[in-house]
Design a protein around this nucleic acid. Structure first.
Length: 466
RNA sequence: CGGGGUGUAGUAUAAUGGUAGUACGCUGGCUUCGGGAGUCAGUGGCCUGGGUUCAACUCCCAGCACCCCGACCA
């Protein structure tokens, strides 16, 4: 039986991921096997997002998995940030390599080394490359989908002539991620800027979209970096402008990972298991025959034919009872279930259950409109997460209230911060909450830093994070 | 890297210093099917190395692995 969410959220999460057959542990520490059902979700994410990425003007390419050590060392902040997490290849066959090869923790350096050749003139700009790939980061404490040593992601890398253009690019990538999380995954999120302490190693600044999970912890759903000229200067990526002057390019990079699947589980799931948004569900509908007689089969094949452009599966396994299948497909999060037995056949009806409310309804077959049902479920999921996020975004009057809420309720705390990283760090040490982001929308009112009391207009979102 | 835990069948677990049991799964049969069916038969297992012992899955030591909790992080 599934652990209850409120009893032990972490255990519930593992139970769902394993039980819904999304993934399983691998023989290799900290790595996971993404099983067909979980991978199908990733494929649907890829399919939809790839279109959005191309709308941003990026083209797909593929760069090597191995990165020469000297590349990684070129940008000092970058190497410092990543070196604790890099896996190294030291031997090729039995022969020791002259220079170690890093297994990419991210591809800035291997890409930018050739960008310097690809970019000579302002006519070569902007350059926008995207890569779907696997990444290795030697994390200390792995968790299925949320933090594994190897994970799958998409990384966009662009180069621009001006800072403004790069600013705009970083922002449109972020808006794309926000739109994707909300429209496709049904997960409401807060867009904002990271603090200096939380930004990407080597970036000018980092943007992110943050979503609240059902246990009140925040999860970063996507991130976008304005890299400034940090990398172009280390890698010598220069172009001649219209007036023949040499300039360094301004760059961005942005990515989302299979972590999003973990977000899906924790943002929508309940004590019955996963709830998948119809748009990315491998199966949008499951049809369960209540009995195996020919009339039922006929009725079902009539229904199957009416399901155009809908991903569905008919669970014909005879060794399992209907009740068993109900539980199974609820655990796996299929948005809409159809039940067909002798009753439905006799009266030409259809019985269905939506995953988010589990209420059984029987209606005339003619009135059955699955697309409409799936659409409304998709919208309800977003509305629910939006509602949840708003209900769990707290205002606080004092630091003691801050601590109280972080410890007991969780959720976001929207408050003022003086901008000093010392306050940020102290709060983290004392409460484990971090500044998830400086939200895009600022009220521009006067407030006081929740920690030191200094006057500030800067509003931030605090939360415990994954 | 620190703290804790666990290694027994495909999975989850139990017991025992003297030839390993249960449940689920899997295979076959019959009966079933409107919220995790019943029955009969079958299948299948002690992480590695060393020590103690007449005898080790069990006790001791070491190793390895994995999981959980923290610091690092998408």
């Amino acid at each position: 039986m599934l652990t209850k969410q409120k009893d032990d959220f972490a255990k519930w999460y593992n139970d769902v991921v394993l039980g819904a057959d999304l993934a399983e542990y691998s023989p290799v520490k900290g790595c996971m096997i993404i099983k067909p059902y979980g991978y199908a979700i990733w494929e649907n994410i890829q399919k939809a997002m790839d279109i959005e990425i191309k709308k941003l003007g990026a083209s797909n390419a593929y760069f090597p998995l191995f990165i020469p050590e000297k590349f990684l060392k070129k940008e000092s902040e970058h190497v410092e940030g990543f070196s604790p997490q890099v896996a190294w290849v030291t031997h090729g066959g039995n022969k020791k390599l002259q220079e170690r090869l890093a297994i990419r923790p991210t591809s800035e350096t291997i890409m930018y080394d050739v960008f310097k050749n690809w970019i000579q003139s302002y006519r070569d700009l902007p350059l926008k490359i995207n890569q779907w790939a696997n990444i290795v980061r030697w994390e200390m404490r792995p968790r299925l989908f949320l933090r594994t040593l190897e994970f799958l992601w998409q990384e966009g890398h662009t180069a621009h002539a001006t800072k403004e253009e790069a600013d705009e690019m970083a922002e449109s990538a972020l808006r794309m991620y926000q739109g994707f999380a909300q429209d496709w995954l049904g997960i409401y999120c807060v867009p904002g800027k990271k603090t200096e302490a939380e930004k990407f190693a080597g970036a000018l600044y980092t943007l992110s979209v943050e979503a609240l999970m059902k246990d009140g912890k925040a999860l970063q759903m996507g991130t976008s970096h304005q890299l400034g000229q940090n990398f172009s200067k280390s890698f010598g990526i220069q172009f001649l402008d219209e007036k023949g002057r040499k300039n360094y390019v301004w760059q961005t990079s942005w990515g989302v990972s299979t972590r999003m699947i973990g977000g899906l589980v924790m943002a929508h799931g309940d004590d019955k298991g996963l709830i998948l948004p119809p748009k990315i569900a491998p199966y949008q509908i499951v049809i369960i025959p209540i009995s195996q007689d020919g009339l039922v089969k006929n009725h079902i094949s009539k229904i199957e034919k009416s399901l155009k452009e809908i991903r569905f599966i008919t669970d014909n396994r005879i060794q399992q009872t209907p009740g068993w299948k109900f539980n199974e497909w609820e655990l796996r999060g299929v948005p809409l279930r159809i039940e067909i037995g002798p009753k439905e056949v006799k009266e030409n009806k259809i019985t269905f259950v939506l995953r988010n409310n589990l209420k059984r309804q029987t209606i005339d077959f003619k009135q059955f409109n699955p697309k409409k049902l799936l659409d409304s479920l998709q919208k309800e999921l977003l509305a629910e997460t939006k509602n949840f996020t708003e209900e769990n975004t707290h205002q606080v009057k004092s630091y003691s209230e801050f601590k109280e809420i972080i410890n007991k309720k969780g959720g976001f705390i929207r408050t003022y911060w003086c901008g000093d990283s010392k306050c940020e760090k102290k709060i983290q040490e004392e409460t484990k909450a971090t500044i998830r982001c400086i939200p895009m929308r600022q009220k521009n009112k006067n407030g006081r830093c929740i920690k030191c009391g200094k006057e500030s207009k800067l509003e931030v979102f605090f939360a415990k994070a994954y």
